[in-house]
Design a protein around this nucleic acid. Structure first.
Lengths: 348, 348
DNA sequence: GCCCCGGCTGTGAGCGCTAACAATGCTCCG
DNA sequence: CGGAGCATTGTTAGCGCTCACAGCCGGGGC
């Protein structure tokens, strides 16, 4: 049943019942030190008796700040951003913050600015922006910033508070695993070039190849989608010299596996494949996919650490986060999609 | 740079600049009818000039209601709940609502009640609970409910405002597709029995079988995970009479495909498979998976319609939603995992 | 010509809370 | 034994907004 027009008890009601002033109630609620234990108990039991709940709007009005973190996230259901968001929402609530979410469909500056402004209007204590592409990251630079703002999955080259998965190192590790299996070189099916994640993984791949003195094949373009991986697979399957492929995410790896299978290229017998993300189904692809597992929870925790620190030290450099590293290195999950190249592998 | 202690301009500042009273500013902001056009323009330009933004906390304090919808969602990253949440977040923002999210790790009554209370403290205008299991749905019954509350993916047998995917019909359609291909009967790898979604899909499967006068094989238990599907597949692969399987979700279907492949059972040559969810990778599994696609966006839209209606009509029955149907029927996506049973299929 | 009425605008109060300061009662020290 | 000094509590003043109620003005009915 919906009850209207009935407001719950206020601080004054509690004060009356406890026989103290409203201010003392406020002190008890905010864990102010100078309250006698006996008084505290009396207030607490009055609160309990009345079922009193503090009015957050009133508190926000006077303090000018709500204990809420605003999140701006892309509207897509891509595994990375979604997992990031989920991990953050859970961690934030555990840390006692509310979480307000604005999903933006278009990843452009205008949408981001609007979303941030929206959060600011709500007097949030801090803002998190999942900023996987340049226009989003750039829009944040010019914004007025009355509260700490932390970027996730943003531009690793930009200054400012940011936490992300170490894409470059992830790319290197993936490539290294393939090289270690004995392959001469490794091909790469990349994500969309305007995504920092994609660029980082590709950079790591190329760097590792160069460090090992290997030839760096041309990048096969993709867009994160299984379809793109499938198309890439159709292309790569025709080239007998291709024995190892690093796909920038598991979705594309899935499509890749599909195409390779269709064209009769055995995995891992003829071609080895490594993905990125460790999506739940990757252990049961055919064959089970070796992949990189990012620790979204660790990233989320680190983001929250920045806000907690910013709360404690309200200096202008709050949430700059020079202390803890900005990037969390993903780990390799070895499964059945990697093996030594076939003995008769043709030279390129 | 973080600026502190500086509050933005208030309604009074705007009023002064526009040469009117603060109340007139308020009227302009709230689209009150009785404001002369010239005045309106003057106020608007003052707002613009000062970069004024209304203080939401102040408004919430006096009205007792914030234009925010609170969502309680399971902490998992299962495709269904996550997609539901994503769709809802996007729709809500488009409808002008803020969205506050609390993810609960444990799907029990206590967690739900806490989460709902949290939202209530924030003066939300409405609450959405993704309540996929009985304890969650039950906890909602006993709750004080000063605002409209809509359940998503909840108990179809419970009264009250609810919107969900039509799981029963989905189960029937999936089963029917397999029967139509010529199979004698269809096996079912179910989700966890305490999930309404799982129960509904299983019920639809059994109902369709019975309606067609077919034998109803025992349910193969599962828990939504690819691993469970894999185990089910290992079991089913040993039984030559199994020619058609309906997996309660695509993740389990993925594991099922894996096990069937390992055991040398050809799909769809020997065994046909239908999944549920249409996850992005399902088009590129081996073979591409025939599956049921739920329309999360439609569900989200319907939920929002209920809140919009409740806003307009603040009667006690608001958001009861007797008008529009509670369930959105999923559609069959036909791919390569279904074919006629082998000619020599043994009788059970 | 007077009054009533409706369109438009202003005034005052108060939503529930915290911050700043004032007031009280003690303890402790010289 | 007086007062500094501290712990504890109360008082007052807003935070920025909406709601209820007044006021003012011009036009139309009689």
């Amino acid at each position: 049943m919906v009850e209207r027009n009935r407001r719950g008890p206020s601080m004054f009601d509690v004060a009356r019942v406890a026989g103290v002033s409203h201010q003392t109630v406020s002190r008890v609620l905010n864990a102010h030190p100078n309250v006698r234990e006996a008084t505290r108990v009396r207030v607490l039991s009055a609160i309990d008796e009345l079922g009193y709940r503090p009015n957050r709007a009133a508190r926000t009005l006077v303090t000018g700040r709500d204990r809420v973190l605003g999140v701006v996230a892309p509207g897509s259901t891509l595994f990375g951003p979604v997992s990031m968001l989920a991990a953050f929402e859970e961690q934030a609530v555990q840390a006692g913050f509310g979480v307000s979410v604005v999903r933006i469909r278009a990843l452009d500056g205008t949408s981001v600015r609007e979303a941030v402004q929206r959060h600011l209007d709500g007097q949030v204590s801090g803002i998190v922006v999942i900023a996987p592409v340049a226009p989003v990251a750039a829009a944040l630079e010019e914004l007025p910033r009355p509260v700490p703002l932390v970027t996730v999955d943003g531009d690793p080259d930009r200054p400012g508070a940011m936490v992300t998965v170490d894409q470059v190192e992830g790319g290197r590790l993936a490539t290294r695993a393939l090289l270690a299996a004995g392959h001469r070189t490794v091909w790469h099916v990349a994500g969309p070039p305007d995504w920092f994640d994609a660029a980082g993984r590709a950079a790591g791949w190329a760097a590792e190849l160069r460090a090992a003195g290997r030839e760096v094949p041309p990048v096969v373009p993709g867009d994160w989608s299984p379809d793109a991986g499938y198309r890439a697979g159709q292309f790569l399957a025709r080239m007998p010299e291709v024995t190892a492929v690093f796909a920038a995410n598991d979705a594309m790896a899935t499509g890749l596996l599909h195409a390779l299978h269709e064209r009769g290229r055995a995995v891992p017998g003829e071609v080895s494949v490594v993905g990125f993300d460790d999506v739940p189904s990757s252990a049961h692809l055919i064959p089970p996919l070796t992949t990189m597992r990012p620790d979204f929870e660790a990233v989320a925790r680190r983001v929250l650490d920045l806000f907690v620190a910013a709360e404690a030290d309200p200096g202008p450099d709050a949430a700059a986060g020079a202390a803890s590293p900005r990037a969390v290195v993903p780990v390799l999950v070895e499964r059945a999609s990697v093996a030594a190249p076939p003995a008769d592998a043709p030279a390129p």
